[in-house]
Nucleic acid binder design. Structure first.
Lengths: 161, 161
DNA sequence: CTTGACCTTACCACCATGGTAAACCTTAAC
DNA sequence: GTTAAGGTTTACCATGGTGGTAAGGTCAAG
């Protein structure tokens, strides 16, 4: 079943055996995962989002990643580590691959993301401060009296009806 | 169909008409929503989590909320506003309703939540700083050169294979 | 009796990630 | 050559908190 298909060696565009792919410096999804710090699961997920589609598969339908794909996966990983959403990353990746981009476009995206993070930080800090003020007033002992519960229960004691 | 069921007036435990419920100071889910600042949707969701289950329904199967329920819904709302997860809120609510609680239990939960928020704040601040450093070095003009993309693409330029 | 506002349940969606299962493939050891 | 281990495939379900929608029942006012 394999031996009569050995024309694969002379036709690079046709599906490959895994060993051939290795010999050509191509990577399976597991190797891609190790090389990028992503999980195979997430690599498939990014493919389903249309971000990274390996151009080839082996005869056994295994994904085959090229060096270019590995670079793109690393790009995605780094952008995720900076907190960008997948939608933002899709745009960033297309800008990255567009040699005619303007750095202004990229910077705009970055500044928007910074502002989103600022808002989340601010909101967290507000909650943190409110709760930590309450915790500071709570004895934290065996008694049931608790300013934390009091405040949550009654944060603006209206009538109920 | 309704008139032969008027025994409902003399049996408070039986399902009510909506008008009867109103007359008793009870509330529909829409009113509960207005009184608490939650949406009807979320009130049903909290019920599905086992947090707030109205003890009665009308003949027409409408949820009927008592003053006690409204208080509990407000408690949930306030705790959400402090960033507590639903799991934490379930515990907080049971502590709130347990007169034999110790304030130490509540404080412990609060301190844990504060620490979670600290971690999220720290992580966001790290990402924010990294990105804002990069943005500061980006011209943001018509040229394609962009330190932001460079850094994302090459954040630790290893060989790919 | 109609109309509009409300209520009911039961779905699907988000976002990024993890998990599982069943089937298949590859490789190495025996 | 068979087998066992481990990698890969697809296809599902789950998280958490919220939003939406659809199809149907109910209530109140005109």
């Amino acid at each position: 079943m394999k031996s009569d298909m050995n024309s694969r060696v002379s036709k690079p565009k046709a599906p490959l055996e895994l060993a051939d792919a290795h010999a050509k410096g191509l990577h399976s999804i597991g190797e891609a995962a190790k090389l990028t710090g992503l999980t195979a699961k997430m690599i498939r997920h990014y493919e389903s989002l249309g971000l990274v589609t390996p151009t080839d598969r082996t005869f056994a339908n295994y994904r085959v990643y090229q060096t270019r794909d590995i670079h793109l996966l690393r790009f995605i990983k780094s952008a995720r580590d900076l907190g960008f959403s997948m939608k933002q990353i899709a745009i960033l990746a297309s800008l990255w691959q567009d040699s005619a981009r303007s750095s202004a476009e990229v910077k705009k995206l970055a500044l928007e993301h910074i502002q989103e993070m600022d808002e989340r930080i601010h909101s967290l800090q507000q909650m943190r401060k409110a709760l930590s003020d309450l915790a500071g007033r709570c004895h934290g002992d065996e008694r049931p009296d608790c300013p934390i519960l009091d405040a949550i229960a009654c944060n603006s004691c209206h009538n109920t009806d």
